[in-house]
Amino acid sequence: MNGIVTILKIRTLQALRMLKDVGWLLLLLVAPLVFVFVLSGLETIADQNSELPLLLAAAVLFGIHFKRDDKAFLERLKMPSIIIYFAEYFYAVTPFFLLVSLATGRVFYALCLYGIALLVALVPVGLIKKKDRAGNWSLSAIPVNAFEWKSGLRKHWPSLLLMYFIPLFLSYFTASILVGMLLTTVTISAFYIEVEGKEIFEETAHPFLWSKILSHSKLLHAFFIPHYVLFLMLHSSYWYLLLYMSFVTQAILVFLIFFKYAQYHPRRIVIYNQTQLAIAAMCLVIPILWPAGIFFLVLYGRRAVNNLDQLYV
């Protein structure tokens, strides 16, 4: 029992460190959006006999389970791994159990979460090979110089899958698709954190900022075609909200490219400054802060152009 408590303590600390890494500002930005999602989910559970939230919980837990790479480590502990897995998942679903039971009164429904946790824990971790999980897809439809997207889709597909499809499933709610587009763009921001080596940069970078923005924008909006279609089918009277969100995601994408190349250096591997990124994104999302958002766009655009000019003296 002590062992389990120690592991759960470690997991709690890891979760807190992860949140710290994400950055409090970005969390503050995302928190209201998550809140809207949770409310939509609770409303679905309370009003309808929908199993969708349970399926979602199962998908998330299976996703985490298959991504685990601590199998060898856990096998060295003097405790069956299944017990550890179950304890961890039990711990993870408990806040949701409490939320669903208290907010909707559907205790049996909430108890199913523990059933899912047990089912997931029973599945052998090595069932899906790590290589397969890496997303070794061809992605030939994406142009070769949009390597950030090829890499990003392969690397972040589990989180993207959730951010992308859940809003489509919940598209009945007007806010769902809009929030989903924003969360997907936030996830896509991770595509622009890694920096290409100088040899790729030299071949693809010049003259490139504008052509890069153009080709990446095409990809972004092609990615959102199902969102656009569903929204216009279900909530066409709110077309202006879709237009607004489309502009916001476009502006964030442009900022991401500017931000990356404003700081690009051939010997740097990762660009990561969540605080600046979160502040700029927030300014681009909230209409009253748009002047500040435009200021950030211009500032980083100029920095990117200057930086590239210096690298190509």
């Binding site: 070769v144 690397k155 890694e194 071949e203 693809t204």
Partner: peptide, 15 residues
């Protein structure tokens, strides 16, 4: 660059 295939890397260099 992570999660790129060997061919994609070379294609980028030989654009």
């Amino acid at each position: 660059y992570p999660y790129l295939k060997g061919r994609e890397y070379l294609e980028l260099l030989t654009l």
